Simulated scan of single mutants.
Amino acid sequence: MSSLPPFPPRAFWKDSEPLECVAVLPEVANTVTFTFRAPSGAFFDFDTGQFLTLELPVPGGPLYRTYTISSSPSRPRSISVTVKAQAGSIGTRWMLDHLTPGTRIKAMGPAGGFTYLQHPAEKYLFISAGSGITPMMSMTTFMYDLGTEPDIVFINCAKRPSEIIFRARLEQMATRARGIDLKWVVEESDPLSPWTGFQGQFNQLMLGLMAPDYLEREVFCCGPEPFMVAVREALQGLGYDMERYHQESFAAPAADAETEGDELDDVYPEADTKAEITFAASGKTALVPETETILSATRGAGLNIPSGCTFGVCGTCKIRKISGEVHMVHNGGISDDDIADGYILACCSHPIGAVTVDV
């Protein structure tokens, strides 16, 4: 009897390899799911809720945009992002108009810590609005694929029923897993299409009706900032333990929000003090005020490094600091291990004195 050949070792995708678009799936108006594979056949290794930063070759570009992964790591042969073009969108509109099967683009990541895997619980409450549904879709699909029955109350808010992203796919999963409890909230019904579900703005009363045991659930929230503010205020007003509340947003943090970062002890950038930045890889130098960011100085020197959010969330502008000190206040876009290894986020790092970076 001949033995089966050994299973080849599994290679995982690295962001040094481009992604190849293999499928384009329209979801709702101005919303499309793009599925990618690695040309080498490598598998994808990521956590549910993480994001990718795509380098988009728009005219005058490249442009860097961050998108949450909507597919599940339980299906590792491909990776998907679901994007919604808003009024004035440049990068997302380019994707909808020009990204077709066979196109290859550069991507960075995966990155981010918005995942239920870091906050295990017996019960979950997922609250989202619009395209904020994407990380919830990834997490729900992963739990569904595990084969065990999850306990999720899944709330999504949309303008109209026809604009609920992933509605059919989620309802199909819910018919095969009793632990997926879907609740849709819309602002208005579609013309000539009666709506018998929740209607209006999400509020405390709706929350109590949809998830009476919300105090027992780990909450994950994603959507536009005003929506997440409303959710936080609703939960706080009901006495929810906000240590169990988690949110994902690529919007700039509120001015009065507490920020965490790697701060140089008692040393802060001064507008009237100059700092000298040496760009080791290119041999250039720049003399700038300490209040100017490394990213701004890099662009002023005619150099280009990838950047996305520009306020320390996405991690796209991570570079290695060879020497010197910076004042960095980020918003979760870099890990403590990376900082210990000498990396900084250029968008939120201010040079103190003489600094050398690997650019």
Rank of each mutant, 00 (worst) to 15 (best):
R65V: 08
G223W: 02
A286R: 09
V186P: 05
Q50G: 09
P9M: 10
M210L: 13
T316C: 15
P351A: 13
I334Q: 08
R244L: 14
C347P: 08
W184L: 13
L56T: 12
S2N: 11
R217N: 11
F126M: 12
V267K: 13
H98I: 00
H330F: 02
I79P: 09
M137C: 10
T82F: 04
D272F: 07
P8N: 10
F250N: 10
W13P: 08
I319Q: 10
C157L: 05
S16R: 07
T356G: 08
T100S: 14
L54K: 06
A38R: 00
G112Q: 06
A23P: 01
D358V: 02
Q247E: 15
L25W: 01
P150N: 08
E122R: 14
G315E: 03
L125A: 12
G261I: 01
R10Q: 15
G239Y: 04
L303W: 01
V153Q: 05
A252C: 09
V185S: 06
I344R: 03
E248F: 12
S3H: 11
G91C: 09
A301V: 02
T175K: 14
A286N: 05
S74L: 12
G315L: 06
S70G: 14
G223A: 11
K183V: 13
L117F: 00
D45V: 00
N203P: 06
T278Q: 10
M95P: 04
T92Y: 02
P6G: 04
F227A: 12
A158H: 03
F166I: 04
E248R: 03
R10Y: 00
M242P: 10
F279V: 04
V186M: 07
A234I: 05
H119V: 03
E216P: 02
F126L: 13
D336P: 00
S323M: 04
R232E: 15
E122C: 10
E276L: 15
P18L: 07
R77S: 15
E216W: 00
T140Y: 03
Y124D: 08
V229N: 14
P62C: 11
R37T: 14
N156C: 14
T310P: 01
A354R: 13
I127L: 12
S72P: 06
R178M: 05
L19V: 05
R167Y: 09
S249W: 01
T100W: 02
E188V: 10
T316L: 05
Y124M: 06
A354C: 05
G49A: 09
A168K: 14
I127W: 02
R104C: 15
P59N: 10
R232V: 06
R169L: 13
T196F: 07
D190K: 03
R178H: 12
G324P: 09
V229P: 00
R169G: 12
E55S: 15
G197R: 03
G132M: 04
A254P: 05
A255I: 07
M242T: 13
C157D: 02
E171P: 01
S72W: 02
W13G: 09
V28S: 11
K159V: 11
G197S: 10
T100D: 11
Q199V: 12
P62G: 13
K321H: 05
T33Q: 12
V219K: 03
G147Y: 01
V326E: 04
G308A: 15
C222L: 08
E270S: 15
R176K: 14
